[in-house]
Simulated scan of single mutants.
Amino acid sequence: MGASQRPAVATMAEPAPAAPKKPHVWQDVPAQASDLAPLTPARAVAVEPVVPAVPVAFARLEAADAAPAAPAPRGRVDLNTASVAELNGLGGGMIGRAIVAGRPYRSAEDLLAKRVLNRATFAQIKGQIGTQ
């Protein structure tokens, strides 16, 4: 490159003056001498514990669409046609919605293959379920 072909060099501009910082809220409020005095028994305020006037009872919340568990049916329950209440009544807990969501099943073992139930729950209900 020749002297006439040199790239132009940018000059650095002066930095803009920094804007004055706004003081924090705590800096705007002047402290009073009483605020800075150490806490003494004369300045201490007695606080009573808060106890509710009415005893609070916590109830177990159930899903709004969950039907009460039906008694266990006599024969095998078909996984592909049984209602949520029938499936919940098998004794494995509230498993009906999960089973219905995973339909269709070719065999009862699909509950494990599709990871709908864990092995302990499956072992508990496997004698009561089947497919057609």
Rank of each mutant, 00 (worst) to 15 (best):
D78Y: 03
T40N: 04
G89H: 03
T131E: 01
G75W: 04
N80L: 13
V84N: 14
A113F: 05
P20H: 09
E86T: 10
V50K: 14
A46V: 08
A108E: 03
T11C: 10
A33E: 11
P71W: 07
A120T: 13
V29S: 14
S83L: 05
A66H: 13
V50Y: 15
V116Y: 03
V54C: 05
P71Y: 05
G102V: 02
D28T: 10
R74N: 11
M94G: 04
V77E: 03
A10I: 07
G2F: 09
A85G: 01
V45W: 03
P68Y: 05
E109Q: 13
K22F: 10
V50W: 14
A123E: 14
L112S: 01
R74S: 14
P68W: 07
A46T: 07
P68C: 02
P73L: 06
A44K: 05
A108D: 02
N118F: 10
A63I: 12
K22E: 15
G130D: 11
V84E: 15
A85T: 00
P52E: 08
P38M: 05
R6A: 12
L117Q: 01
E109G: 07
P73Q: 05
P68D: 10
V84Y: 13
Q32G: 05
P73A: 08
M12A: 12
A113R: 09
E48C: 08
P71H: 06
A98L: 07
A108F: 04
L112Y: 00
Q124H: 10
R119F: 07
M1Q: 08
V50G: 13
E86A: 12
K22A: 15
R115E: 15
V47L: 11
A108Y: 02
T121Q: 06
A31T: 11
K22H: 09
P20F: 08
G2T: 13
P15I: 04
A66C: 08
Q5S: 15
Q32I: 04
K21Y: 06
V84L: 14
S83H: 00
R97C: 04
F58Q: 11
A10F: 06
K22T: 15
T131S: 04
I125Q: 01
K126F: 09
A13F: 10
R76I: 11
N80D: 10
Y105Q: 00
I95D: 02
K22Q: 13
G96W: 00
T40Q: 06
L90N: 00
A3E: 14
A31Y: 12
L112M: 04
S4K: 14
A70S: 09
A16Q: 07
K114M: 05
M1C: 09
L61F: 14
I129V: 14
T121E: 10
L112H: 00
P7H: 08
A19R: 12
A33N: 03
A98R: 03
G130S: 08
Q5V: 11
D110N: 01
V56G: 04
Q128F: 09
V84I: 15
V25C: 06
A18C: 10
